[in-house]
C-alpha cells in the first residue's frame, strides 16, 4: 500500500492529493444535506424559517450557476450575436419551460448548440 502511494506521489503528487481532497470535500458536503434532515426529522420537525429558506435555495442556486455560464466569457460580460451559449439558451428556453424535462433540456441544448457551432 505505501509502495503504491509512494509511486503515486512521485509521478503526480500535486494533482493526486488535490483530486483526493476535492473528492473527500464533495463526499462530505453532498452527504450532510441529505442525511441531517432525515436523521433529525425522525424525531421532530424543521424550524419554520429554515423550511421557508430552503424553499428558495434551489431556484437561486440554478440561476446562480446558469447566468455566468451564458453571460460571461473569460470573466467579462459577453452579450453578442455570436455568444452561442446565450443564443442556445434563448432558443431552448420555451421548450424547457413548457416540458420541464431534464431530458428535453439536454437533448435540445446539445442539438441546438451543435448546429449553432457549425453555422457560426
Amino acid at each position: 500500500m505505501t509502495e503504491i502511494l509512494e509511486k503515486i506521489r512521485l509521478t503526480d503528487s500535486y494533482s493526486n492529493s488535490y483530486i483526493i481532497l476535492c473528492i473527500l470535500a464533495m463526499a462530505i458536503t453532498t452527504f450532510l444535506p441529505r442525511y441531517l434532515p432525515m436523521a433529525l426529522l425522525k424525531k421532530k420537525t424543521l424550524p419554520h424559517w429554515f423550511e421557508v429558506w430552503l424553499h428558495y435555495v434551489p431556484p437561486a442556486i440554478f440561476g446562480a450557476l446558469v447566468f455566468p455560464d451564458i453571460f460571461l466569457k473569460n470573466n467579462e460580460l459577453y452579450i453578442a450575436l455570436d455568444n452561442i451559449p446565450l443564443l442556445t439558451t434563448l432558443l431552448i428556453a420555451p421548450i424547457i419551460i413548457k416540458t420541464r424535462s431534464l431530458g428535453a433540456a439536454i437533448v435540445c441544448g446539445g442539438v441546438v448548440y451543435g448546429i449553432l457551432q457549425y453555422l457560426l
Partner: peptide, 13 residues
C-alpha cells in the same frame, strides 16, 4: 460544458 448548463436549466425549470 453547454450540456451541463442545459442540465441545470432543466432542473431549474
Amino acid at each position: 460544458s453547454y450540456i451541463l448548463t442545459a442540465m441545470f436549466l432543466g432542473i431549474w425549470s
